[in-house]
């Protein structure tokens, strides 16, 4: 299983070389640290799908002594491991550039990354190869474009919800979001396993 997670490093040797310049670009462009953490986290796990969506890769992995459950588990566990590593590297770089960041930035980036992963990972196993990238890209742009206005609209109009959220203490809010995100990520993991186990290769 560890071997399955490790294969992303072997596969993405070349992409790794542009990882640092990629983050540096965001830092130089003065992006919000939370955004920098987020894109850094997304880098490896989503690049990996460029390989994993291919039919041949699935035939190979399934012909090796792995179960389908393990193949999916390696994706979800791997995403978390690479997220942690990416955050480590990014923190170091931000520190070297002398840019201040807070733990909250990291927390927000982690939450958004896990949330985004929870929603998109199953799509890679539902849609046919070739379509997925566009689906994910479009949904990302849609979410980024439409998401905030919807939230603002809801906040303005449904005062009960807004009041409830505003009245929550910071700790409760963080804990609450963490619980919800962990739940969604686990549920997504379960759903993807279910889909993959029934998939014809």
């Amino acid at each position: 299983m560890f071997n399955l997670i490790r294969r992303d490093v072997i596969l993405q040797k070349r992409q790794m070389l542009i990882f640092i310049p990629f983050i540096t670009f965001f830092i130089i462009m003065d992006a919000h640290p939370a955004l920098t953490f987020l894109v850094a986290s997304i880098f490896i796990p989503f690049n990996a799908f460029a390989y994993d969506e291919k039919v041949e890769t699935n035939i190979l992995l399934n012909s090796l002594p792995y179960t389908r459950k393990e193949i999916i588990a390696s994706r979800y566990i791997g995403a978390m491991i690479y997220m942690i590593l990416a955050i480590g590297v990014t923190s170091l770089e931000l520190f070297l550039f002398g840019i201040p960041f807070r733990l909250t930035d990291i927390a927000v980036a982690c939450c958004l990354f896990l949330l985004f992963s929870a929603f998109t990972f199953p799509l890679f196993y539902i849609f046919k190869p070739g379509y997925i990238y566009s689906v994910v890209l479009i949904s990302f742009l849609l979410l980024a474009g439409i998401g905030p206005p919807i939230v603002i609209f809801l906040m303005d109009n449904i005062t009960v919800v807004a009041d409830f959220i505003i009245n929550l203490s910071t700790t409760v809010m963080y804990m609450g979001s963490a619980v919800i995100i962990i739940f969604l990520y686990t549920a997504s993991w379960g759903i993807t396993t279910y889909i993959y186990q029934r998939k014809a290769l």
């Binding site: 071997n3 399955l4 072997i10 041949e56 035939i59």
Partner: peptide, 22 residues
């Protein structure tokens, strides 16, 4: 057809495939 990652060389493929077998 070829099922191995086509961009990799055999050494890297061995690194991925080898450890999966006891």
């Amino acid at each position: 057809g070829n099922v191995f990652f086509e961009g990799l060389n055999l050494l890297d493929i061995k690194r991925i495939v080898g450890p999966s077998y006891k």
